[in-house]
Design a protein around this nucleic acid. Sequence first.
DNA 1: ATAATTACTTACATAAAGTAAGTTAATAAT
DNA 2: ATTATTAACTTACTTTATGTAAGTAATTAT
Lengths: 103, 103
Amino acid sequence: MDQSLICPRFEKAITLLSKRWTGLIIYQLLNGPQRFCTVESSIGISGKVLSDRLKDLENEGIVKREVIPETPVRIEYSLTEKGLAMEPLMKEIEKWSQEWLEA
Amino acid sequence: MDQSLICPRFEKAITLLSKRWTGLIIYQLLNGPQRFCTVESSIGISGKVLSDRLKDLENEGIVKREVIPETPVRIEYSLTEKGLAMEPLMKEIEKWSQEWLEA
DNA sequence: ATAATTACTTACATAAAGTAAGTTAATAAT
DNA sequence: ATTATTAACTTACTTTATGTAAGTAATTAT
């Protein structure tokens, strides 16, 4: 009796967002391209997990990684079109949180 | 250099949704009140974790638990107003998934 | 040659989730 | 009265995920 009526695409999306940190990383990157250490310190994630997540998100086509040969080397992470398309979704989370959660 | 510019309410909301299964449980309950075993089999979560999550969500005021003295006893879980208010958010996730993920 | 900086990686410890068996409580059948 | 049945959990144990802290690679400045 495993009648999964849940759309597999929706399930995949929510599974993505249900991974710890994923949502916050995307939200943070909506502020524009930024480097590893900026994301790390602004959301308080460990370097190890951030490294994992950014790879996952790159594989999903949500995040883009760009090496900028400066001194020392700078690496910029940014959202792809697919990632940027999550903005309305994030706005809805924001809305809900402002209406239903206490400060 | 820990300049967390992220709104604490938003952070709490996304932390909630970043817990494995939370989003799917809420989504499933948008179909209307239902019992433990229905949620369990429709989303494929283990009884143990479902039990934990439903307690968390009850404590957050998102889910309501009602004992119905039938034979055998039936327990119905449903969304509160706060939980129902997540529908637009879920719809946005659905939209994104339909536009950006493959079937 | 040595030090400094960013972006990682590795080894190890702790916490969360999965599995399967067991418990409780309310009847219902024998 | 005893046994069985069913839903809703719990508990004990295993596996997986995350956290912490130290280490490495590459590049350039001194």
